[in-house]
């Protein structure tokens, strides 16, 4: 039996099921990435594994034990970081360490906190509040908080989606680094095929909801360490990227696709004609409308 095992898991919130018939097994020490469209149920899936939600049907086991609720052994890094804004970097991490290792001496706890702050290179910011950190720094604190509890499996919910490309690349390297030193089992949720291929041993597409389910898994046989630049010219990488992208797109055919566009109605108030004409934001909320356009492909 695999380390993490999901069998025929479904989850709904009263309406049509968000996830249906999910089957997933992850081996010990494996790094699996799940790629899916926005809103397809990725957070729902990872919350089920974290134990924050209960499945409507099916079973989830870790190391053979059924999952009944949240536990620090399954360390979750939240999509929106969820750092406690009233605690400093060190206090946020200390809260986790103290609560998971109450038996340790205060000195050992403090040492553990500092070790993980150093690991994400934030020693200079240890006494700052989250509001004084950049997005990338917050994300690193969130990762450090989870890693500091020494989880058996690391659950990453789109950890890098909200970051700019440069920060994203440097944090991808950091995840690779963590993975190389600790060999933790990792489940990464992402919306970027490139990111999944760069980091994971196996990539699984998630079909769009409602009733989303996991597609066929794709093994990534690219040698490590993987270099971002070299990878772009690697024929195997190109093949895998095309394969996964086409599968994800394939799920879309038959599904009617819409995009929502912001529409700003023309303003017919008398205006100062001498004023320079610039793209000004709408004046009244009623001026903002949304327009849904069907995509025909």
């Amino acid at each position: 039996m695999a380390f993490l095992e999901l069998t025929n898991v479904s989850k709904g919130f009263g309406g049509p099921p968000v996830l249906s018939d999910i089957n997933l097994s992850i081996g010990l020490g494996e790094f699996v990435a799940i790629v899916g469209y926005s809103g397809s149920g990725k957070t729902t899936l990872i919350s089920l594994i974290a134990g924050l939600l209960r499945p409507t049907a099916g079973a989830i086991t870790l190391d053979g034990q059924p999952i009944t609720g949240p536990d620090p052994e399954r360390g979750l890094v939240f999509q929106n970081y969820s750092l406690l804004p009233w605690l400093t970097v060190a206090e946020n991490i200390a809260l986790a360490v103290e609560s998971v290792y109450p038996g340790k001496s205060p000195a050992d706890q403090a040492e553990q906190v500092d070790r993980f702050i150093a690991m994400v290179r934030l020693a200079h910011a240890r006494d700052r509040l989250p509001r004084d950190l950049s997005g990338g720094m917050r994300q690193r604190v969130a990762v450090a908080r989870t890693l500091a509890t020494l989880p058996r499996i690391l659950l990453l919910d789109e950890p890098l989606s909200a970051l700019d490309a440069l920060t994203r690349a440097s944090l991808q390297d950091e995840i690779t680094q963590i993975r190389r030193t600790d060999n933790t089992t990792i489940l990464l949720i992402t919306n970027s095929v490139d990111e999944a291929l760069l980091l994971a041993d196996r990539v699984i597409p998630l079909t769009p909801g409602p009733g989303a389910t996991l597609g066929e898994s794709v093994t990534v046989n690219l040698p490590r360490p993987r270099d971002r630049k070299a990878l772009n010219h690697d024929p195997e990488f190109k093949r895998l990227r095309a394969l996964i992208t086409n599968r994800l797109l394939g799920y879309r055919t038959g599904v009617k696709a819409n995009v929502t566009r912001k529409l700003i109605l023309p303003d017919i108030l008398p205006e100062d004609l001498d004023a320079p004409r610039v793209n000004r934001p709408p004046r009244r909320p009623s001026e903002i409308r949304e327009e849904v356009v069907a995509l025909n492909s």
Partner: peptide, 8 residues
């Protein structure tokens, strides 16, 4: 949820 995952 942070509290729940950490079992505070």
């Amino acid at each position: 949820n942070v509290g729940r995952v950490l079992k505070l």
